[in-house]
Amino acid sequence: MSTTVSDERLRAVSPWRKLLSRPELGAVAGAVLVFIFFAVVAGDSGFLNFRGVVSWLEVSAQLGILAVAAALLMIGGEFDLSMGSMIGAAGMVIAIPVAEYGWPVWAAILLAFAVALLIGYLNGTIVNRTRLPSFIVTLASLFILRGLTIGATRLITGRTQVSGLKDAAEADPLARLFIGDIFGVPVSVYWWVALAVIATWILLKTRPGNWIFGVGGDPEAARNTGVPVNRVRIALFMGTAVAATIFAALQVLDFGSADVTRGVQKEFEAIIAAVIGGCLLTGGYGSAVGAVFGALVFGMVQQGIFFTGVNTDWFQVFLGAMLLIAVVFNNFIRRRATEAK
């Protein structure tokens, strides 16, 4: 498009400045720094060789799957604290029908996704109807879902772990999507990239993407311009529940066993990755690409500390500090984006 505008007030903005106002900038820069740091410190103790790279990529990928969905939801102005519990629940919904009732694995997987859609629908509907902060609503779901998972599993199986799925999973056509690796790279990495691409495409290139930003920025304004605010929210909560189920399928089918405590605290890790990725806690701003890099930072730090031989207890200190830096940085960016006159 030709620039018809000859406004004398239009100062030439360098591409560099434009880049600076992208939400994912912080996470990309952070990822580069973290990579360089561990490449120098732990480069010869395995961080850089193929198996090392695959190990931190896999950690990043699994978290990244959750983080991308959490980022979309955060841009839409909400949180889902029940993601971790959803992982435990979905794992059991896959494992119990197969191990206890002899279901084919693909049927159990489909059931788990159906349950996830239902849970997401319920979370979204409760938030819409009560107009309570989703933080509180999904905090309730976190406990209800975890409690239901533990209670029902013990009731049905008498235990809190279900195993012996490995053979059935390896023979199943649908389960294959969640097992093993392609060209030496775990399938989770492909899921991560595919979901990030889809999420980015939705956000930036489609109508619902525009609505997500609008709903998160100012739901009342969005509704007044004709955006189906409630439906957008419900779809986003379904997205986080489905992402949790993909995560669960990847773990349960790979290990061949499920445990009721799977996924504990994953909701926080997903939110941290999304925030490092530039999502504002207040909604309306952020990116899926940012969440990808947020998860990458997370994975590199977690595995990098392991490779340096430092006690991994220190990981959490690092994590908290990163979160704080990211939030401060994001606030600065937001002020630049809105107030730069």
Partner: peptide, 28 residues
């Protein structure tokens, strides 16, 4: 009904976005 964090274009067409393409591949 204006979203301060969003661009002029995205605000203008909020809720009434023009699309091109077909079916699930329709884009803004």
């Amino acid at each position: 009904a204006i979203q301060p964090l969003m661009s002029v274009t995205r605000n203008f067409f909020m809720g009434r976005e023009p699309t091109r393409g077909w079916g699930p591949f329709r884009t803004f």
